[in-house]
Simulated scan of single mutants.
Amino acid sequence: MSPLPVALRPNLIDHFYRGGGRIAALRGITTTSDHQPEEWIAATVSREGDTRLGLSSTQDGTLLRDLVVADPQTWTGGVGAWPGDVGLLLKLLDAGQRLPVHVHPDRSFAARHLDCPYGKTEAWLVLDAEPGAAVHLGWVDDVDPRDVVRARDEQDGAWMLRHMHRIEVRRGDGILVPAGTPHAIGEGVFVAEAQEPTDFSILLEWSITTSTRDESHLGLGFDLAMQALEHAATSTERLAELSVHRDLDAAADPLTSLLPTEADPFFRLDLAVDGAVVPAGFAALVVLDGSGTLRCAGGDLAIARGQTYAVPAAAGDWHVTGSARVLVARPGTA
């Protein structure tokens, strides 16, 4: 018999920055502090430097990673860069304060220097934003690497932000953040973040975090790590290519892509509503609103707002019925 999607336990992450209230409201759970601003959904990778933190588990406490390792054919169709790899990571991120300016390595850099086939291209789907809330993405003009090094060494975050695009955001904005592009999420922004399955971050602005300088360059040293950073400007035309907007409350199609097509090789993020048919393959789900049914070859599964699931590839094509609005994250096409 074909397997059904598996319900997941809450997986809140304690962090240096404030937030988490909007995650708790969506998920119908209670936070234990005001510094639990992230939840990792269907995660089979852990936080950098930690062997367990971040890993998702099923309702009975079994790690999803262990299920995938034990039966990769069922979960991923046998594909994966390492045992337990599902090809993506989905997060909920509720920024109660501005995050630091940072950058992620691309696949080429990660393969050469971090022994990993994945970099950390990511994308933000804005689920909610306070009026005037913004993200920062890319340089406005070409920057001199020496100026960036000075700003980094002096922890001059104000200089960095002045030289970056500030983009006010609203619910339904989907923004791709290519690896190598400096970025920061601003206070008051609640996103679902799809990304490659790593936790590789190079902090240019560690002084507003609990990290030290020596913990901010992935153990590579800054001379090497800074080679992952793009110094050329991100034009306004390029920003337009990296952004789309969708109405999350009145989707035009049963299955609606929420990100620019440039994201497809890395991950896909869709909104599935009544009548949607999602092709077979591993998927991470968040039920954003409503209730309904996931119909799979193995049977029907009742779903409701706030629930999260991991869908094994062997579940086959599956359908959404009812009033449920389901966020679906899937691995990329390359």
Score class of each variant (00 low, 15 high):
P3E: 01
L4A: 06
L12I: 09
I13G: 13
I13R: 14
D14F: 08
D14H: 15
R18P: 11
R18S: 12
R18M: 11
R22M: 03
R27C: 10
T30Q: 11
D34T: 05
P37H: 07
P37K: 00
A43L: 01
E48I: 05
G49H: 02
T51N: 07
L53H: 13
G54Y: 00
L55T: 15
S57C: 14
T74S: 13
G77F: 07
G78T: 07
W82E: 06
W82C: 10
G84E: 00
G87K: 01
A95K: 07
Q97D: 06
R98W: 13
P100H: 04
D106Y: 01
S108T: 12
G119V: 04
E122W: 08
L127R: 12
A129F: 07
H136P: 01
H136D: 08
W139E: 02
D142T: 11
D144P: 12
D144A: 03
P145N: 01
P145E: 02
R152P: 01
D153W: 06
G157K: 00
L161F: 03
H163N: 06
H165S: 03
R166V: 13
E168F: 15
P182C: 04
P182N: 00
H183F: 11
E187G: 10
V189D: 03
S201D: 10
E205D: 00
S207F: 08
I208C: 10
S211L: 13
R213L: 06
R213A: 05
D214G: 14
F222G: 15
D223N: 14
A228H: 02
L229C: 01
A233D: 11
L239Y: 09
H245T: 13
H245F: 14
D249G: 14
A251E: 03
L258I: 00
F266R: 13
A272M: 09
D274S: 15
D274L: 12
A276E: 06
V277W: 00
V278S: 08
A280E: 15
G281D: 10
A283H: 05
A284R: 09
V286C: 05
D289C: 07
L294M: 13
C296M: 04
C296D: 08
G299Q: 10
A302I: 07
A304G: 12
Y309I: 04
P312M: 04
A314T: 05
G316R: 12
G316V: 11
D317R: 03
W318G: 13
G322H: 10
V328S: 02
R330D: 00
G332P: 07
T333A: 12
